[in-house]
């Protein structure tokens, strides 16, 4: 291995290695503070105990079936998001009046804590997976709509002119130029939407004590199984990170070089 090659290899591994080291360092520090009595172990369980309870939580609490449930809810919300979010964005781009009328409050909705409306959803859909999916869907809709509009109206003028110069009809202009040009931005919207959906779905599961990973955290907390609760939270974080990374991979795979 030559010196420059080693240098680039180092460059590639250094940031993640450093990130991991910071994380480990943080846990070690927490551990030391708990052992030294600075932190109360009945509020924050020692990291070693959390790691120890991972196996128990995975086996005894059926974490994988819970995970599949949450994932299923997430993907259902994702399908709805893609269909209705993109369609909404397209309509708003197509009819400027609609855009002028709605864009601001769609944007406002993006920053509103929709989860808190769960009682309303419970009244409509009952204490069921449907409620959870619907909240995930509604909460994640704004980024998909907004990114779709952004992508469509961001299409370079010259590409639209190319379409015109080839005498494209209105629908050809949309399907052959505007939509493919907007697709990368729409993907970003869908990825953001799915992440919003995951966060909200776990949150609602926790709040209404129903379903997958969110309910597990609620259960463990009510049993005052602190180490288990934190282990479950770690698991959710891990799932989110993996989910995020997978989405990025899928997105890169779906769009060719540009």
């Amino acid at each position: 291995m030559s010196a420059p090659a080693r240098h680039t290899a180092l460059r590639a591994y250094l940031p993640p290695a450093f990130g991991l080291a910071v994380l480990v360092g943080f846990f070690v520090a927490v551990e030391i503070m708990i052992q030294g009595g600075i932190l109360n172990r009945f509020i924050v369980p020692p990291p070693s105990e959390i790691i120890g309870s991972f196996g128990r939580v995975i086996v005894e609490e059926h974490i994988f079936s819970r995970f599949m449930l949450t994932l299923g809810e997430c993907l259902s919300a994702g399908v709805m998001l893609t269909v209705f979010g993109v369609a909404g964005g397209v309509l708003m781009h197509r009819f400027k009046l609609l855009q002028q009328a709605c864009e601001t409050w769609v944007a406002a909705m993006a920053s509103a804590p929709i989860v808190l409306m769960y009682p309303l959803f419970m009244v409509i859909f009952g204490r069921s997976s449907l409620t959870i999916v619907m909240i995930g869907f509604i909460a994640a809709l704004p980024p998909v709509i907004l990114k779709t509009i952004e992508g469509l109206s961001g299409t370079r003028k010259v590409l639209i002119n190319v379409g015109k110069s080839f005498n494209l009809t209105r629908s050809q202009q949309f399907w052959k130029i505007l939509f493919p040009a907007a697709l990368p931005t729409i993907f970003v919207g869908i990825r953001l939407g799915l992440i919003f959906a995951l966060i909200n779905i776990v949150g609602v599961e926790f709040l209404i004590n129903y379903g997958g990973l969110g309910q597990l955290i609620n259960d463990l907390a009510e049993r005052y199984d602190l180490a288990g609760t934190y282990a479950a939270i770690c698991f959710v974080i891990l799932v989110s990170v993996l989910f995020f990374m997978t989405l990025e991979k899928v997105e890169r795979w779906l769009r060719p070089a540009d």
Partner: peptide, 16 residues
């Protein structure tokens, strides 16, 4: 018009 073909000043290939 279909008998007129245009090549633009800006880069105009379809990246997709």
């Amino acid at each position: 018009h279909q008998s007129i073909g245009m090549v633009f000043q800006e880069e105009s290939t379809f990246p997709w």
